[in-house]
């Protein structure tokens, strides 16, 4: 144990703890709690029943009052620890409550009714995960539809992004032609034009080509990402031109050079772009909110925001849907976070 502590508290150079070390660890541990805590709290909450959610102060784990079936009573009865008049405590089941008096029975001997003041009883609680929060929305709210729409938009947009961006990056990195710099400049300039600036005209274009209320209307405007072209072009510039010349010598067509040589060699950069694109498209909100106005077309993000904006928020379902919406990005975070962080640190682009 002492060696473990020595290991954890060791410092380079064998110096004693400096106040900055304490600040460092307070900051890091605090960060751990602040960054993960909210999502963890939400996930635990999503397993609570509506009654459990209404409790205050709330518990971390989802507790419910234990119930038993008692002979002679149709419905299962809640169990309580009741303090009796003689001072002893017994586990009793509540039959009904009248005012401040609760009528209880002993589950083993249900004949006799015992009257207990409600202040003298405490519910017997057990941990129980309300998985119906997850299964019910699938049947009640077209939740499966939203999930499918989100998956469809994300996968399709990412595939098109990869193809379209890599073709453009190939042209911009491996061909000499007039207007190449102008094209590159136009692409970089579009970084300046965020969605919120062109909301109205983009909507009118989408409507006039008949893509309003269509998932393609969500997908198409997003696929030609300037960031993607930029990342891929930078990577392709490092591929030696001799490879291409050799392929041309062997009578390979330009298309074959692109597909057989450039794309496989660009795989690492393509992987980074694919991860980025999946996260972007999965998280997109404002544009789908505008393009999709029919319920059966909503993506998860739009569906979630619409349901959570209703007057009577059904929090137990909303929380479960939020957790499902988080799953893909949490998976990306666990397994692919390294690619994203190196991608950002390397290019400074998000």
């Amino acid at each position: 144990m002492s060696t473990a502590i020595a290991f954890l508290t060791r410092r380079k150079g064998g110096k004693f703890w400096h106040w900055t070390d304490i600040v460092t660890w307070v900051w890091l541990i605090g960060g751990l709690i602040v960054m993960f805590g909210p999502a963890v709290w939400l996930t635990f909450s999503s397993f609570k029943t509506p009654a459990g959610l209404a409790e205050f102060p709330p518990s971390l784990l989802p507790y419910v009052t234990q119930q038993v079936r008692v002979e002679g009573y149709e419905k299962p009865l809640p169990l309580f620890n009741a303090k009796l008049a003689d001072g002893s405590t017994r586990v009793l089941a509540e039959v009904r409550r009248i005012g401040i008096v609760s009528q209880m029975v002993d589950p083993k001997a249900p004949g006799e009714i015992i009257k207990v003041r409600i202040g003298d009883r405490e519910p017997v609680r057990e941990i129980s995960f309300a998985t119906e929060n997850y299964t019910q929305p699938f049947m009640q709210f077209d939740f499966f539809r939203y999930l499918w729409n989100s998956v469809f938009v994300t996968v399709t947009a990412t595939l098109i992004t990869l193809i379209v961006n890599s073709m453009a990056a190939f042209a911009l990195s491996k061909y000499e032609f007039k207007g190449r710099n102008a094209a590159m400049l136009v692409i970089l300039a579009t970084l300046m034009v965020p969605l919120s600036v062109i909301l109205v005209p983009l909507y009118s274009i989408i409507s006039s080509v008949g893509l309003f209320n269509s998932l393609w209307g969500v997908i198409l405007p997003t696929v030609a990402t300037p960031t993607g072209v930029f990342i891929l072009r930078q990577y392709m510039l490092t591929i030696p031109d001799e490879l291409i010349d050799a392929a041309r010598m062997d009578k390979a067509s330009e298309w074959q050079i692109y597909w057989r040589i450039i794309v496989p060699l660009t795989a690492p950069a393509l992987a980074v772009l694919a991860i980025f694109s999946v996260v972007w498209r999965w998280n997109d909100f404002l544009w789908p909110l505008i393009v999709l106005s029919r319920r059966e077309l909503y993506t998860l993000q739009v569906g979630l925001s619409i349901y959570s904006g209703e007057l009577n928020v059904q929090w137990h379902y909303i929380l479960a849907m939020t957790v499902v919406t988080m799953i893909p990005v949490v998976l990306v975070f666990i397994f692919l976070q390294r690619f994203i962080t190196t991608g950002i640190a390397g290019s400074g682009l998000k």
């Binding site: 890091l28 960060g31 751990l32 960054m35 993960f36 999502a39 996260v279 999965w282 998280n283 909100f285 993000q301 979630l304 925001s305 939020t322 919406t325 988080m326 990005v329 949490v330 990306v332 975070f333 976070q337 994203i340 962080t341």
Partner: peptide, 14 residues
């Protein structure tokens, strides 16, 4: 580093 990066990946709606 990953700890502080986690919320960046979450969707704004979430």
């Amino acid at each position: 580093r990953a700890v502080f990066f986690f919320p960046v990946l979450l969707s704004p709606v979430v």
